[in-house]
């Protein structure tokens, strides 16, 4: 029978190595994805994964008092990602495709199937948005990644950052506005 997360955490705190291995298996992709989106490459994402699980292992005594294991784990991962990003400040991630955008880009937001040219335009915009993300300060970037890419709620993000939900809303609003301006500039440049 599949064990629940609280059951696995209990076993892990009690010293069960298999429980730790199972927790790694269940959360590794989430951690990897956050690390990859924040730092933009596999090597750094790999470091985030390893370091997060090593830290959770060292801090397993704390888990007895932790309400949600996932929040605690993701907090460690996001903190480490931000630290790593700050350490690597100046080494900006450059997206591979740096072509200018065509002028008449209209993203397909309706349910209808996009034409090949729209698909192409969307792909270009996607590259631009990924590049634009790297220009945001760490907290804003992480908030946009967690909310709009990874799908976490504002309440979950507030728990991870140990901050009020209003701060998350504010960070998200600022991040989206900055992305919007960057994208607008890119579209104008292509015109």
């Amino acid at each position: 029978m599949t064990k629940t997360i609280p059951e696995l955490v209990n076993s892990f705190v009690g010293g069960d190595e298999n429980a730790f291995a199972e927790l790694i298996k269940r959360f590794r992709q989430k951690i990897y994805s956050i690390g990859f989106q924040m730092l933009g490459n596999h090597l750094d994402a790999d470091e985030v994964v390893q370091e997060t699980f090593v830290r959770i292992f060292k801090r397993r005594k704390e888990l007895a008092n932790v309400k949600y294991f996932s929040t605690f784990l993701l907090r460690i991962a996001t903190n480490y990602s931000i630290d790593l990003l700050r350490r690597k400040k100046g080494h900006r991630i450059i997206a591979e495709d740096s072509c200018n955008l065509p002028g008449e880009i209209q993203l397909t937001l309706s349910k209808r199937v996009a034409t090949p040219s729209e698909e192409f335009a969307n792909k270009k915009l996607l590259e631009e948005i990924k590049r634009a993300l790297t220009n945001l300060p760490p907290k804003q970037r992480l908030t946009a990644i967690l909310h709009d890419i990874e799908g976490y709620t504002k309440s979950e993000i507030a728990d991870m950052f140990e901050c009020p939900e209003a701060t998350v809303r504010s960070n998200l609003h600022i991040a989206r506005n900055k992305l919007r301006k960057i994208l607008r500039r890119q579209i104008k440049k292509g015109e």
């Binding site: 996607l126 948005i129 946009a144 992305l179």
Partner: peptide, 19 residues
């Protein structure tokens, strides 16, 4: 509104490949 929807839509399309 349209621009904001674009941003949200584009971000939702950003994916990470599973190793």
């Amino acid at each position: 509104f349209e621009e904001l929807k674009q941003i949200k839509y584009l971000l939702s399309k950003v994916k990470t490949n599973e190793p």
